[in-house]
Design a protein around this nucleic acid. Sequence first.
DNA 1: TATGAATGAGAATTCATTCAT
DNA 2: TATGAATGAATTCTCATTCAT
Lengths: 186, 186, 186, 186
Amino acid sequence: MMQAAVRIFAEKGYQAATVRDIVEAAGVAIGTFYFYFPDKETLFVHLYEETADFLLQTIGQSLNSRATMPKQYQTALNAYVNIAVYEPAIIQLLLIGGVGAVPALEEKRAAFRERLTQVWQRPLLQALDKNQIAAQNDRRTAEALTGAFDEVILNLLKQPDPGEDASNTVHDMTQFAIRATAYRGE
Amino acid sequence: MMQAAVRIFAEKGYQAATVRDIVEAAGVAIGTFYFYFPDKETLFVHLYEETADFLLQTIGQSLNSRATMPKQYQTALNAYVNIAVYEPAIIQLLLIGGVGAVPALEEKRAAFRERLTQVWQRPLLQALDKNQIAAQNDRRTAEALTGAFDEVILNLLKQPDPGEDASNTVHDMTQFAIRATAYRGE
Amino acid sequence: MMQAAVRIFAEKGYQAATVRDIVEAAGVAIGTFYFYFPDKETLFVHLYEETADFLLQTIGQSLNSRATMPKQYQTALNAYVNIAVYEPAIIQLLLIGGVGAVPALEEKRAAFRERLTQVWQRPLLQALDKNQIAAQNDRRTAEALTGAFDEVILNLLKQPDPGEDASNTVHDMTQFAIRATAYRGE
Amino acid sequence: MMQAAVRIFAEKGYQAATVRDIVEAAGVAIGTFYFYFPDKETLFVHLYEETADFLLQTIGQSLNSRATMPKQYQTALNAYVNIAVYEPAIIQLLLIGGVGAVPALEEKRAAFRERLTQVWQRPLLQALDKNQIAAQNDRRTAEALTGAFDEVILNLLKQPDPGEDASNTVHDMTQFAIRATAYRGE
DNA sequence: TATGAATGAGAATTCATTCAT
DNA sequence: TATGAATGAATTCTCATTCAT
């Protein structure tokens, strides 16, 4: 039922998704929903947090290597795109599903954006330490990259066959990041 | 009443905003709403399109000069940030208000994203023509810049006093765009 | 609609009475209910308090004369029985409708019982002052009379034609009160 | 489980008490409830009747002595108050728990009130036979005493420590009954 | 005997929309 | 033009009851 819920929430967003939609997608009765979850909001928050944690951890781990900044971004973007292609609902839930919902959600969403920005900022800080990129407002660069990656991925998902263009997308985004940070190598 | 509607839709999003909210904010009766607009959805779509047109035109005009690409982006981003600071409702309506709403909206929203991407892509195409930026997937760069700008602006609006940081934000985004496109001047 | 609500609440009690029952009895739509009242509980509390005030005031005024205690009780019991016969819903609402309901109600109910007891206690206190009744625990006598009168009235309302026996009931209850207080006259 | 049910029904009343409340209080599963009882209503009616029988029998036996009317009432009221103090759930179930519930209950409740009235009426009839009390509408006196006793006992149970005031209450009620029946002794 | 996951009818409440004035 | 009382479909959530294990 949780898979069905993720799918429905991803498709319609929190407000438009009804409990009936979810249980119908899961093939169970309404009562069953309330047997497992206290209410719609709690489930959504739970799903949102769990999904956010998964995404942040996956991207974060890809960035943990000692490789160069380009390699780090490439690896992490590859992981991100893979999730988008094979589990698009996850991306849609995080990037679309929780917008304009209840206040409790708005807060979670803001926290997720913040953590995501900080994840993408890490390679920047390391590269700055090693003097491999130009001096810049690294926080703002991180914000910009965060928005850039998400937008490109959402555009990728709009295509009829996202998988086909996945590796190109990773390549383009990596190059974009290298340029945008003025990476000058070792 | 339309101003009130923009404000309410921007604050709460399409779903959460009720017709009652809007008419109360406008100081009229519910019946008056339905005298002027056929229904809530039509009004929202109308407002969304009108607002999108305004934003696209404002940004587009700022890009129409014969100036260099950096100057173009700087001017346009300045206009964008000004709107965000002085009419935050417009930005919130476009970037947040219409997410996860009715299908008819989703379509308009997609069209707006597409047009916005094409607007930001124009300086790129001109610069490529003049061989002022490196060869690149300019469509994807445009998508990335579109997402980058929006994310930075939404972060700006989260600050207690967005106006204070406005010019810095314009500067940072402009530099980001210059780097991200590998602009090498004339 | 309020009359219909009193009737339904009196018939079924707070819990068993549904909003649908009420609006059907009133011949309006469900939405109309919520146009006039914020929710079922608020309406019930309002009705309960208003009805309690009415009953207490009616009985209280009947006791306000300078007459002798028997005359006071007779007049007040006559008023009480009249309400029971001509507006049985009022009595049922107060004595039955609010039992075992929400906590907010339980409190109102307790307050009503307390006030009713105090009303019936007043003639006792005056008579004690004038040394017309034997020394006794007047508070407890008042409680007992309160319960006694209510029980007799509820039994009266169970009869096929309560009106027929009304004056006898008033007489019997008055005599009961005279005996129970050991009234010895002037 | 039946003890738990009595306690829960007494606390919350028939409507508000859920089967889940009962099985949780009893430490068994929901299925177990339906293995032993056909449904909630049947259990309640059964419990109500059983409890009513117990109370009526206890009071009835206390009245069966050949003692004088005052002694009879004193003994029976003592038994009644003892039950109230040591098993308040029994009193609450009978006097409150079943109000405003299902129709089947209303009937049982009416039957219980009728039997209780008849029990309290018995000493009156004997005393009338022996010419020890004044001529009066003995049925109505019995109703009044029934209501009086219940009201006083419910007030007793509202006190923080009902046991403390128990013997006073028995004394006061006995005196009340003696006065109310105009008992003149042998 | 005992369990507890699963069910779905029914209850309260919301809100877009209509229409007589 | 403007009003706002009235509507009822749709939504969330509860809870008595069933049944396979």
